[in-house]
Each structure stands twice: as C-alpha cells, then as structure tokens.
Amino acid sequence: MAFSRLPVPSRANAFQVQFNMTFQDEALPSETFRASGVPHRDGNDGNKSLAQIGDTVLQLYLQLEGRARRASRDHISEVTKKVAGNANLTQRGFALGIDAYIHNNPSQGSYISDKLMATTMEAILGAVFLDRGRDLAAVKPVIIALGLTWPE
C-alpha cells in the first residue's frame, strides 16, 4: 500500500498500526508527522517542538544505557553522537519507511529532506514520551523498534 497516497490523518493511523502503538492524546500523531511550514491552527512549526523533546529523550536514554554498561564518559559521548546524530536518524527513518507517513510542506511536494526525516524520528520519541506520562522507560520499546539502541 502506498501510504503517501492516503489522506493525511490516515498516515498517522497507519504508522500506529505498523508499529503497534496507540496514542492517548489524539492530537500527537498528526503533530508528530507534520513538517514545519504546513499550515495548521496551532502554528507552522510542525513537529519541531516534539523533536526537541525527542532528541533530549534519546540522548538521556543512551547516556543512561552507557552508564549502566560502565562505559567511559568519552565512549558514552561517542555512541550518543553516533546513534542520536542526524545521519543515523535519517538512515533509520528511510530504512523503516517513515517518509510515507510525513505530511510535508506543500512547497516541498513529495520530497522528504534528510533534516525533516531526522526531525520526524525525534518527534516520534518526543510524542511517545509525552503521551506516556513523561516516562522514559515507556519510550524504550519505541527506541528499540526504531533501531536507535546502544550498539553491541
């Protein structure tokens, strides 16, 4: 099925089905996949505020994981930069087909930039974190599903 041909609200629902998750806050899924510049009653920032939270959540998760593994501070920093970096987020997002769910800025057409993909991956984590009562442990299964875990 070509998700990009689905109506915009259906894309977020399709994501939830594919990744076996549901949101209590029904506004979060559409915000998660809304690119900056898409006209909306809440403003044109799209998923950027969720991405900011998601970036912090992912970095905290990786740093705590490194500490639990008794990794050195330098190694924790290196892994965090690699896993939470835009290049990895972009690669993972496209590999998982996340681009099919994004409601892009009309001026961009169907083109999904690397930056938008990285931002959307972070927004997914931010949305889950907020939806699950700001519980970092509740985000772990999503981090795993997105392939953003500490490398073995």
Rank of each mutant, 00 (worst) to 15 (best):
A123R: 01
A87F: 14
Q16D: 06
K140Y: 10
E31Q: 13
L64F: 15
R134M: 10
F94T: 02
N47R: 11
E31A: 05
L62A: 06
N20G: 11
P29S: 04
N105G: 05
P7R: 08
L116S: 00
R134C: 09
D114E: 14
Y61T: 03
Y111V: 15
W150R: 09
K48P: 00
A123L: 01
R134F: 08
R92E: 04
R92W: 02
M121Q: 06
Q52T: 13
D74Q: 15
A145M: 03
K48S: 11
L130Q: 12
Q52W: 10
S77G: 10
H40R: 09
G37E: 07
Q16E: 13
R134W: 07
D55H: 13
A118M: 09
R132D: 00
D55I: 06
D99A: 10
E78W: 07
W150G: 11
N86G: 15
E122T: 09
D131K: 00
L130Y: 04
A138T: 08
G93E: 08
G37L: 06
F129E: 01
S4D: 10
A87L: 13
D25Q: 12
R41V: 05
F3C: 05
I53T: 15
L62Q: 04
I112A: 03
N13D: 15
A51L: 04
I144Q: 15
D55M: 12
P39I: 11
A12I: 03
L89P: 06
G97V: 07
F15S: 01
R134S: 12
S72H: 12
I144S: 14
G66Q: 12
I98N: 04
A127H: 00
A2I: 03
A68R: 15
N88Q: 14
R11T: 01
P29H: 02
G93W: 04
A123T: 02
L58V: 09
V57R: 01
L136M: 11
M1G: 03
F3Q: 01
P106A: 12
A100R: 08
G46M: 10
Q18I: 07
V8E: 14
G93Y: 04
K82L: 10
V17S: 10
M117C: 09
I53S: 13
V128F: 08
L58N: 02
N20Y: 03
V128N: 03
D131Y: 00
S49F: 12
L60F: 13
